[in-house]
């Protein structure tokens, strides 16, 4: 694997209860870049992220991170590798019994022998980076959705990871908070020299901050390219997605027999 590729995914497959979720995904994530994985709800984006983090074992294919084969690692090896990863969950997943400060300090206290003074300085720096140094004493219940996401972002980068993964970082945010989170993702990635993988369906924000985009549909990569290539794309799927069109290759209705057939069948217990 060339040195500039941090994550190399080859023919990745994953089945859930016999239903194929990922069907042969191939991706190369270069170091230092912010890469978005986009697609409609239920297309396998989060599953892919969890396979990269080793939280799910794929049914086929490979995920290589640096020189490590993620799918073949033991639990102990995975835990060692995850110390170099950070992850931002959809709604932050802050520990509700800890203050903002303790949440950000959590990975530092768990994985380092630093003194409390050193931890304090580092936590302050991380909170300063996300603009929430003044909120360090608040509990997660006292934060807005956007603030919670920023605290979670500070926690995700507390150990200066080489790879940061974002699971739907923009969900449920107002336009201002959304823009702030987007800019933070880009700035932190560049400042830390990290690599970011972002799973989202917010096309407009993503086009502003990412270096490369993969589109997933039905568990497969259906399109990919730089933001400029995506904007200029004539691919029907990309076009439908970028311009939020109702008609196109992605169907609105869940697969079902025809309505006529169902109505004529009479009442049966479902």
């Amino acid at each position: 694997m060339p040195d500039d590729i941090l994550v190399d995914i080859e023919d990745l497959q994953f089945n859930y209860d016999g239903r194929p979720v990922l069907q042969g995904i191939n991706m190369k994530i270069p170091r230092g870049k912010v890469v978005a994985i986009m697609g409609g709800s239920g297309c396998g984006k989060t599953t892919l992220l969890r396979c990269i983090g080793g939280q799910l074992r794929p049914t086929g294919g490979r995920v290589r991170l640096e020189k490590h084969q993620v799918c073949e690692m033991s639990e102990a090896e995975l835990y060692r590798l995850r110390r170099k990863m950070g992850m931002l969950f959809q709604f932050g997943a802050l520990f509700t019994d800890m203050s903002v400060f303790d949440n950000v300090a959590f990975p530092l206290r768990e994985h380092t022998d630093m003194s409390e003074e050193m931890i304090r300085d580092l936590v302050m720096m991380k909170l300063e980076a996300v603009g929430l140094r003044g909120a360090r004493k608040l509990m997660p219940g006292e934060l807005s959705g956007g603030m919670a996401r920023r605290v979670a972002l500070a926690r995700a980068v507390a150990l200066d990871p080489m790879l940061v993964m974002y699971d739907e970082p923009f969900t449920g945010l107002d336009p201002i908070a959304l823009g702030v989170i987007g800019q933070l993702i880009r700035k932190l990635n560049d400042a830390l020299g990290a690599t970011s993988i972002m799973v989202t369906h917010d096309i407009h924000e993503s086009l502003l901050i990412v270096d490369y985009i993969y589109f997933l549909n039905g568990g497969r990569v259906v399109a990919e390219g730089t933001p400029d290539e995506i904007r200029a794309s004539k691919d029907p799927f990309v076009h439908q997605f970028v311009y939020a069109e109702v008609e196109g290759p992605v169907h609105f209705d869940y697969p079902a027999p025809s309505i006529r057939q169902e109505l004529l069948a009479g009442v049966t217990r479902v």
Partner: peptide, 22 residues
């Protein structure tokens, strides 16, 4: 149960901290 529902256990696992131990 609520820690699981709000993905706190998953987050801990991703931070290389075993939720069963912690």
């Amino acid at each position: 149960g609520l820690m699981k529902a709000t993905e706190q256990l998953k987050a801990m696992d991703m931070m290389a901290v075993n939720p069963i131990a912690r």
